[in-house]
Design a protein around this nucleic acid. Structure first.
Lengths: 239, 239
DNA sequence: TAGGTTTCTGACTACCAGGCGAAAACCTCG
DNA sequence: CGAGGTTTTCGCCTGGTAGTCAGAAACCTA
């Protein structure tokens, strides 16, 4: 890197920004994919994305590419995931691709182009390139972060009942979660707070639910657990 | 991406693979840096790395670049960290860089080239490009992973006493850790196991310490905590 | 007003991390 | 050979947090 490289020694590669956009729809977690009309992988489903342009960062690029599919304003969260560099990942020629993870709150239903659709993440159709494996990486990242951060805010509407939030978590995590425990854990951590309002009484009766919101619309990590923490930081140390 | 791009529409960029190589040396966590002889940033310290070649993956590239500094065999762990794409990150022209995190066990002392040296991570010298911020990212990643994975195996010798392991953790985490708690936590999780042997009695007396090893030389994540886990996975549920 | 449905709250259990002190096992010195 | 010092190990206690369950609360419909 310190040396001066001739152009022969500094090969350059087209670089793509890809996005795994996830949303809970109809109680299931979906990924946004578009269907390729041409070879290679004609008919297969691919992640939205495209070339990194000369003057933009990868973050700006992925936002720009996504704006061709949905209004970027619907994205509740966007973070870099990983970079794929297998020389054979695109049969047309070498490209490097950096994937991002994007999340859309469940109450939105943005219009999509004709070639683009939502697919449940369990049971994806045939995918192009290495995009199937990238979606699995994104899934893993999301499920981990749901446990020790407040990313949930990016999947849930601005205000919600505990029952609604539970549906989001069940769909995203892929397994059952009890409403009682979800509420208590998130309240104790301080990531959830009551709005003071009540949801309109249900169609089928029952006690009206209280409304909650996420305390911070920023991503915060609640330390995984208190293991190996400096002694002074603990709380209940009177003796 | 589905369309065919002309070369004007598919700009290409030199791509670097960088490595943040960390090791605990003399009870402090150090990063491996080399000093740039030329502009830009002449005299400043930079991460080892270099250009991604035509037929290699980023992982292979970073290993190849590192082999110019140390024998790659000393690396106990290597994982992708993040990709930097700021168009202005290199004043000579745009490059994209993918950083990796590498770890070397504390009992090794590989020979380094003359321009390369270890620097304590708290108190780095002037760094080139965005490399200082990349080191901070690596630090954050390492410290998180020490809490909920067994990456410690990549920083510690193959066999060690609890006191020795404690020194590694104290250096890497940057704060104190009690030997008692460290031993109990790691044993309970099953990431540590006794070898059955004893360390040679100390120079200054004292009870000889038992030797331990990491149970698995593979990276394993011990679930951060049991939050939002499926009900059936719990153990002591008799009623 | 009675019965059904949904939500909320509190109590109980299990598990895990942190801290402390005593006991164990070794050394050196007198 | 015993006393004192040093280091490690082990057990006990505390506090915090997650999971489960049952009952109370609050609404609807009939």
């Amino acid at each position: 890197m310190g040396s001066v490289w001739s152009s022969a020694e500094r090969p350059a590669y087209p670089h793509q920004a890809l996005a795994v956009v996830l949303q809970v729809r109809d109680r299931r977690l979906h990924a946004m994919l578009w269907q390729r009309p041409n070879e290679p992988f004609a008919g297969a489903w691919a992640l939205p994305g495209g070339p990194l342009l000369a003057e933009e960062t990868l973050g700006a690029s992925v936002a720009r590419q996504l704006s061709a599919k949905v209004e970027v304003e619907v994205l509740g969260h966007l973070e870099q995931l990983e970079t794929r560099s297998d020389p054979g990942r695109d049969p047309r020629g070498r490209t490097v691709a950096t994937a991002y993870l994007g999340l859309i709150p469940s109450h939105l239903d943005p219009a999509l182009p004709d070639d683009t659709a939502w697919h449940p993440v369990d049971g994806l159709p045939a995918t192009a390139f290495d995009h199937g494996s990238i979606v699995r990486s994104a899934l893993h990242r999301l499920r981990s972060k749901l446990s020790y951060t407040n990313v949930g805010f990016a999947l849930a509407p601005p205000e919600f009942t505990v029952a609604e939030l539970r549906e989001v978590y069940v769909a995203a995590l892929g397994h059952d979660v009890t409403a009682t425990n979800l509420q208590r854990v998130l309240l104790r951590r301080g990531v959830l707070e009551p709005t003071g309002e009540q949801a309109p009484p249900g169609r089928s009766g029952g006690r009206p639910a209280a409304l909650y919101r996420f305390a911070s619309p920023e991503l915060e990590v609640t330390d995984p657990f208190a293991v190996f923490r400096p002694p002074a930081q603990r709380q209940g140390d009177a003796g």
